[in-house]
Structures are given as structure tokens and as C-alpha cells.
Simulated assay, not measured.
Amino acid sequence: MVELDAVTRRFPNGVTALDAVTVAFPAGTFTAVMGPSGSGKSTLLQCAAGLDRPTAGRVTLAGQDLTGLSERRLTLLRRDRIGFVFQAFNLLPALTARQNVGLPLRLAGRRPGQGTVDRALTAVGLLDRAGHRPHELSGGQQQRVAIARALVTGPAVLFADEPTGALDRATGRDVLRLLRTLVDAHHQTIVMVTHDPVAAAAADRVLFLTDGRIAGSLDTPTADAVAASMTGLGAAAEVAA
């Protein structure tokens, strides 16, 4: 679904955030991206999602090469083919859950059909809370609304940046179970940046970055195995320093 081919992102200050990264995120899979602070996790997510342009290399999303697209075409692609979930829920407080979920369709100039919005709310288990405003919902429910909003356009891929970072452990696990269900039951493709081994263990694969390069991967991860790998990356970084 998403492919990065020798992607490098170098900033004007000379920092190389990504260094010739080649990786594929197959359709219908759940990948967690981990690494120390400054390893390039967020830059990888931004390049893969068309939010940032690589200095070199190529990004392909659902067969579409993003390299030469104009800003307008990139905007349209992000609007129609990509969903985003962040640590902050970013819900509009004056709108109900149903209205928040339908907002991407309205911004695209499309009238959100109640059936479309209700299907997204049903997918996250919140149809019965459709008329509630954010302050009437728990943190976990607000994140579920944010996930429904990301799903309402039927995205090819869902990018999540620390989606459980603002939640307590029990609520975070509920959200992770939801993401897992979206992959298993609906064949959704998910790429998630996280620092939490427990969150990463919900994925099919964990991709480890360090110094802008892929440092390894772990299939069918457990929280203990992820934590051990992260500890190893930290130790290697200290030796290199």
C-alpha cells in the first residue's frame, strides 16, 4: 500500500532525518514504527503520508507516485486516500461526535450522508454517543471519534502518531484493540509511530529506526521483545557515541 524507495530527507540545517530508507507497508497490515528521540520516526510518517517531500528517493501510495505531484494534487490525495490520528484528539468542541466525524466530507465539499457517518461511528463502537459533544465523552471515546473521523472517507491507509499517548493504560489498550480490529476485520492498513512497547505489540510488525536508518524489524512482536530491542538500540547508540 505504501512504499519508500531510498528516501532521504535532509534539512537546511544539515540534519539528515532519513538516510536512504527503503521499506514497504503492505495492504491490510499494522506496522508500528519505533526508535529513540530524533531517530526519524515522525519524518518517515510525514514523508510516507505526503506531508513532507523527501530530498531524494520516491514514495508510492496505493500505486500513486507522490514525487512529482503538485501541492494541490498532494492535498487532494491526502484528503481522499489518507486518514490521520494524532495524540491530540483535535475535535471541535461545539460539534457533536456525528458532526465531527462528518467534517472531512464537508471540507471536501461533499454533504456527509448519515449512513456514511454512522457506519464510521459503528466501526468504533460509538453510534450510541453520536449526539454527544467532546466534553461529554471520555478521553478514550474522544480518540475513537477521531479515528472514526479518519475513517469516514474510506482511506487507503491510516497514519497514527502516538494515538494512545494522551490516554491511561486501560483506555489506551481499548484503542489499540480497536485498531487491531480495523486491520483484522476491515483490512485497513495502519502505520503507527509509538514509544510504547505495549502499543507496538498490537502491530503485525515493528520497524526500528536509529539515526534516520532502519535498524531492524520484529514480526509478531510481544511487549517484552519490543522493550528488549529498544534497550539494545539505546545501548548501541551509547557505544557509538
Rank of each mutant, 00 (worst) to 15 (best):
L158V: 03
R119N: 06
A48I: 02
A215Y: 08
L218N: 10
T171W: 02
V198N: 06
T181C: 04
A228D: 15
F208R: 10
V2D: 01
T222K: 06
A225M: 10
R72C: 00
T43C: 04
A170I: 10
R111W: 07
N13H: 03
D174E: 15
T75Y: 12
D224V: 09
S70R: 08
R177N: 12
R213D: 13
L151E: 07
R144D: 11
S37M: 11
L95P: 09
L209W: 05
V15N: 08
P12E: 11
A62N: 03
E162I: 13
P26C: 14
L178Q: 04
A97Y: 03
A88I: 10
L107R: 09
G63R: 11
A240Q: 03
P93L: 01
A203D: 06
D65R: 02
V23E: 11
T171C: 06
A49T: 15
G115C: 00
G102D: 13
A17G: 15
F159D: 04
L61E: 09
T16A: 14
F159T: 05
G40P: 12
A236T: 05
D204G: 06
G131R: 12
L218Y: 10
V117W: 00
G35E: 06
Q99I: 03
M192Y: 04
G57H: 05
D118N: 14
P26G: 00
L44S: 02
P54W: 04
V2S: 01
T194Y: 00
H186G: 02
D5V: 10
E71D: 15
V85P: 13
G50A: 07
V7H: 01
N100D: 08
T231G: 02
A108P: 13
T29R: 07
R129E: 09
L61R: 09
A148Q: 00
A48P: 03
T181W: 00
L92Y: 09
I82M: 15
D168T: 06
H187Q: 11
G131I: 00
R10M: 08
T222R: 01
P134D: 05
D224A: 09
T8A: 00
T181A: 15
C47S: 09
R79N: 12
A160Q: 08
E238L: 13
L91W: 07
I147K: 15
D19F: 03
V152T: 14
L121G: 00
Q99W: 04
V145N: 14
V15P: 01
G234M: 09
T8P: 02
A20W: 01
L176Y: 00
L107C: 02
